[in-house]
C-alpha cells in the first residue's frame, strides 16, 4: 500500500468587489452545479435555498458621490475555531485536513440548525421544503453531487465535485497532485468580469496568494478570529472601512441590504 502523505492544500478565494457588477451569474452557476432545487411558490428571500447570495451595499452619499458595491456572500471556509464545526452535535460538519474546505454531510445532519445560528456570515441554508424538480430538470441534475433531502442544512463547499473530478483525472495520469487548472468552482468559472480568483493559499506562486495579502484585500468579521479563507478586495476606502466597522443599525421593514452608511 502506498502511504505517501497527501499534499496539504488551503483553497481560498479573493473576490474583487470593484469588478463585481452584481449580475448573479455566479449564483445561477452555483445552483446548477450543486443541484440546488428551484424555488417553490411560497418561498421568499429568507427561507429559500441558495448557496450564494449577493447583497447590495451603498455608501449612501448624494449623487454624484453615491457608490454601490455588490457583495457575494457564501461559506467563508473558516480555518480556525470553525464556528459551525464545533457546535454540530453529531460530526456532520468538518474541516478537511487536506484542503481546508469546510464540509457538510447532509446525510448525517439532524436538522437542528445550531450551525446556522453559529455562522456569523449566515452562509448556511436549511431545506425548509421538499426539493422538487420538474422532469426536464431532473435530466439535468449533476450526477457528481448528491441532492439533499428536506430537513437538512447545506452550504457551499467550493464545488467539491469538481475537486473530485480533478483528483480523478490526476490519478488516471498517476499524479497525486491536481492540476490547478482542473479545479475551478462554478462561480469562478461563470463570472463574466473575472472578479473571483480561486486557488491554493499555500502555493506561494499562485496569483491568489499575492492578491490575498494585498493591502486592499480584507475579510469580513476578521476580528472574530475564525480566519476565513474567502477574501474580498476593493480599492475603495469606504468599502474596506465598511467591512471593518460595526455599524449602528436601524430597523428596516425589508430584510435586505440597503444600509445607512457614511464612509
Amino acid at each position: 500500500m502506498d502511504t505517501t502523505v497527501e499534499k496539504k492544500y488551503k483553497f481560498g478565494m479573493v473576490i474583487n468587489l470593484d469588478k463585481c457588477n452584481g449580475c448573479g451569474a455566479c449564483a445561477v452557476a452555483c445552483a446548477i452545479e450543486n443541484n440546488v432545487p428551484p424555488a417553490v411558490q411560497k418561498m421568499n428571500k429568507r427561507n429559500g435555498l441558495t448557496w450564494l447570495t449577493i447583497s447590495t451595499v451603498s455608501n449612501n452619499e448624494q449623487y454624484p458621490q453615491s457608490e454601490t458595491v455588490f457583495v457575494p456572500m457564501f461559506c467563508q471556509q473558516c480555518e480556525k475555531e470553525t464556528p459551525c464545526m464545533t457546535v454540530c452535535p453529531q460530526n456532520a460538519v468538518d474541516v478537511d485536513p487536506t484542503t481546508g474546505i469546510v464540509g457538510q454531510v447532509p446525510q448525517r445532519c439532524l436538522g437542528c440548525r445550531y450551525c446556522m445560528t453559529a455562522c456569523p456570515y449566515h452562509a448556511r441554508y436549511f431545506n425548509w421544503w421538499d426539493p422538487e424538480w420538474t422532469d426536464g430538470m431532473k435530466q439535468q441534475l449533476n450526477p457528481d453531487v448528491a441532492p439533499r433531502m428536506r430537513g437538512v442544512v447545506e452550504k457551499c463547499n467550493f464545488c467539491h465535485s469538481r475537486l473530485h473530478s480533478a483528483k480523478d483525472k490526476a490519478a488516471t495520469l498517476g499524479n497525486r497532485e491536481i492540476n490547478p487548472a482542473d479545479y475551478i468552482p462554478a462561480c469562478v468559472e461563470s463570472c463574466p468580469n473575472k472578479a473571483i480568483t480561486f486557488g491554493d493559499l499555500n502555493d506561494t506562486t499562485a496569483p491568489i496568494t499575492s492578491l490575498a495579502s494585498n493591502s486592499n484585500s480584507f475579510r469580513f468579521l476578521s476580528r472574530l478570529g475564525t480566519e476565513p479563507k474567502v477574501y474580498y478586495h476593493s480599492k475603495k476606502h469606504w468599502v474596506r472601512a465598511m467591512a471593518e466597522k460595526a455599524q449602528t443599525r436601524s430597523r428596516q421593514a425589508d430584510g435586505i441590504a440597503e444600509e445607512e452608511f457614511h464612509g
Binding site: T86, V87, P89, R108, L110, G111, C112, V152
Partner: peptide
C-alpha cells in the same frame, strides 16, 4: 422542530464531544 427527528440517535452514535448540544442531548 428539528429537520430530521428520526436521526436523533446519531448524536449518541457519532457524538461530537465538543458540542454543547451533545452534552445537552
Amino acid at each position: 422542530d428539528v429537520g430530521q427527528p428520526l436521526r436523533a440517535w446519531f448524536t449518541f452514535w457519532h457524538p461530537n464531544t465538543h458540542s454543547m448540544l451533545t452534552e445537552v442531548t
